[in-house]
Design a protein around this nucleic acid. Sequence first.
DNA 1: AGCACGCCGACT
DNA 2: GTCGGCGTGCTC
Length: 742
Amino acid sequence: MSWLVALPLPIPALDFLPPHGFQGELPLGHRVVVPWQGSIKIGIVVAEGQAHTHRLREVIQVLDLWVHPTLIQTLKTYETLSGTPLGLLYCDLITCGWEPHLKHFVKPVEGADLTAFDLDLPADWSLYHNDSGVLDQVREQGLLEERFEFPIRTELAYRGRLEGEGKLTPKQKQAWKTLLSIKEVPSLAEWARQAEVSTSVVSGVLSRGWAEAFERPAGPPECVPVQERNLKKAAWEVPEKGIYRLHGGHPIERFQHLKTLIEQHLETGVLYLTPDTYRLERAWQALSHIGAQCYSGTLNALQREHIWQQVRDGHCKLVIGTYGAMGLPFPSLSLIIIEEEGSDAYKLLSGSRVFIPDLAAKLSEQRESLLLYSGSVPAVESLRFEGKVLPPSKTRVHVVNYAEDSSQPETGPLSMQHMKPALEGYPLSQDLRKVLTQVAERGRQAVLFAPRKGYSALIRCRACGYIPFCKHCDVPLKFHQGTRLMQCHQCGYRESPPSTCPKCKGAIWQPKGPGTEWILQETRQLLPGFAVYRYDKDHQDDLRPIYEGHPGIVIGTQALLQEKAPPELALVSLTLADSWLGYSDFRTDERYHKLLRQLLEWHPRRAPLLVVQTFQAFHAALLAVTEPQPADEFPLKDLSRRELLKYPPYSLLAQVEVASRDKTRSESVADEIQKHLISKGADAEEVLGPAPAPIGKVRGLFLTHLLLRAENETRLKTLLEHMDERWKARVRVEINPRNANF
DNA sequence: AGCACGCCGACT
DNA sequence: GTCGGCGTGCTC
């Protein structure tokens, strides 16, 4: 019987035979070393194999347990539904432990004759590091014994010696004596600190031979131990398993609620997921005293592997992490918390492209653990679950209405009289100028969010309306003041702007728009001498003075929200909120609402004034935050709209992407797929499109989309099974797409 | 993903 | 005649 092994490659799991003479159970979830294309790879045993067709190769060695069986089951379910190669899912979720950094020992089998091979091996066990394909040939012939060991990590340390050359100065003598008394130090700097001398003194001792450097086994990377504590009863009634939610209020209040719950589950395993490192840090600060470990991409491979093992061995029972923590092998896991379950950050942009909360839901089902969604706003999809909404906290929001026609819609609240048309003075309206001046006068801090990066928007012909597009991607080029070039925001292609319109020879419109650079210039003009910083994808000023609390204004993109809020933040502004409403997507309003809530709770203590400049002053998502409203009120409105349009949660979506170098081919294949699905019994409501993708051409490939809309998972699976054919173009399926393209 | 194989255009 | 583009297919 063979074993199915998942490998960190975009391919399905493959069959291998157990190692020669292997006795015992299927090592499910264990890491194994397998031969791979003349070399070796680390894989994970995910199931009993079934194939007998090939002449299979043998697993070389079974290593340790690395993945919990429930995760294997979860990924398997997702694989069969989406058709995503299992390896991609494993790459995304098992975020360490794939690197074959192992000590490799080899020995020819007794009496084996290796003269036919270009390989000179000693008769007994020897360390092997050469990675030539020859070894694999010997291996395949069954003439080789192999053994892998985890290397023992070492680090450099210093210890004192009883004698050296020459005399020591008094300070050096002091340093030497200190070193002798403390035996060993991990670094010269540490030694100097302990001895209360400068580093030059200790290096003097070292160079005279009164101390020496030596290698010693390295200790584990830093890890906060789990503390014992008395368990309190939660102040709220929460089920033992299933899905529950907690939204609204202030983050501090939410953490208070969560803390009592986490404490109850502390002995049985708690996983806390956050969408980004900013929230990770916030959660860490709120919960670290209970004894939590962090796990995110910011850790290095060593730290990750260490925590992975700590969790596996039951030494660490509470982990706060970003999506990569989901694969951690908790022996038992009774609570999974997902912060901001509706965040797009949970959608992986490459590889498997999974939406982590989808997987977490399946995993919690497998593990029979409680899944708790928590955050400022519930996702529209999670309203169907039971939960608690904390009362709204006080906010200060000021809306600047840019629309020329400022007449209120009948349904608008009465408190909007303060909104006057404010077109004069874009990007800084009179109101915004006034508060900015106050910020400067009081020596406080402000953050202005610019809609798009670059000095600005589109270059356009004044006469015929011509807009230069990228040669490779179907997107308009954006002009950048710094380089004086137009650049594609999709592929990075650059070109200098035309002096006259290539179409009609008319004059080119002066590039001015709502970009960071323009707002920066205007702000500097308004407040000469006051510190103004820029922070976007292209240009990052050193913001340390801001984080240290010095007065200043930061002008940046949404990327800033990934950082913690400036400590003296008094004002936040969306300089053109409408640019967050330009998506061609049914989640647009929900995203906008989330953004507003996120801005309002960005600063953990202060409640800065939020100034929103917009042409859509009466947008429901905006009204939902100008007047204190329960966090789920706007999502509930959105929910009824979704029911009408049969969007999630009233359906499950999958996006089919057809890609071809040939435009008509891309379209015709999409058309074929659509017809094929209909012929297999799909109805028109279930197959939408084909339509050109929001960005119709990417890196020379024409993309056409179809949207599948199924009422449940079984139905979606059926539809996707019909897709499993050979098409004349590259076809990719994405479950639960969350594109945010303009 | 990497790597081999294979089929067509521009070159010493 | 070859060199080299990248399209397709396979890895157990």
